[in-house]
Amino acid sequence: MIEFKNVSKVYPNGTRGLNNVDLRVDDGEFVVVVGLSGAGKSTFLRSINRLHEITEGEILINGESITKAGGSELYRIRRDIGMIFQNFNLVRRSSVMRNVLSGRVGYHSTLRMIFGLFPKEDKELAMRALERVNMPEKAYMRADELSGGQQQRVSIARALAQEATQILADEPVASLDPMTTKQVMDDLARINKELNMTMIVNLHFIDVARKYATRIIGLKEGEVVFDGPVEEATDDVFSEIYGRPVNEDELMGEA
């Protein structure tokens, strides 16, 4: 469960990234955040695991305040939140296995991690995570030998190995083609259903958002302008979020 309590974020130059956001995401929801670029989608997502600091309010993860957490407490809360990035953010030179295992670093002592010693259970867990995204045979390839879609699925496996309860995905399909977009989104949907992991996904494409989301949050200039079940998010609602009629390039098409 993620709770935003009157959260605002003002950048040093005065720009408002988030403006008085107050909402709650329950366990097992599939939330898609939409809005124009610059509307604060990325800031919204990154403030949840404190990759970005907020300037006002408080964010609670499963009842604990990540805003007030410091040091090891912060690391432990972050461990419960997986994150998927637009550009995959894998260590390209390392093997797929090592990338997936890097989701486990929060569970072990620093000394152990300096030597990269993961217990056998972790390796099995990582292998199961790779099986869940249909890539066990790629475990010992280098990450940069894989295609974009495959790399994104490795990063999903990393979040799975992390045994997180929530997954944040920042434009996970923006650098993928329609075919792989479908695979990646299907993976996320399956994980959401089978493992009851909460998904909060930033998306650019409206039709993809409608297909996968159970709830849509619309952001405009850092403010929540729509928050409701996907059925209520009509074309008119999207036009309002975007401040103009929906464009052709905001539809992916065949996906």
Partner: peptide
């Protein structure tokens, strides 16, 4: 440095 962001997000010190 993008992988650094990912490692921070997993809870790495």
């Amino acid at each position: 440095l993008s992988a650094r962001e990912a490692l921070i997000a997993t809870g790495g010190n």
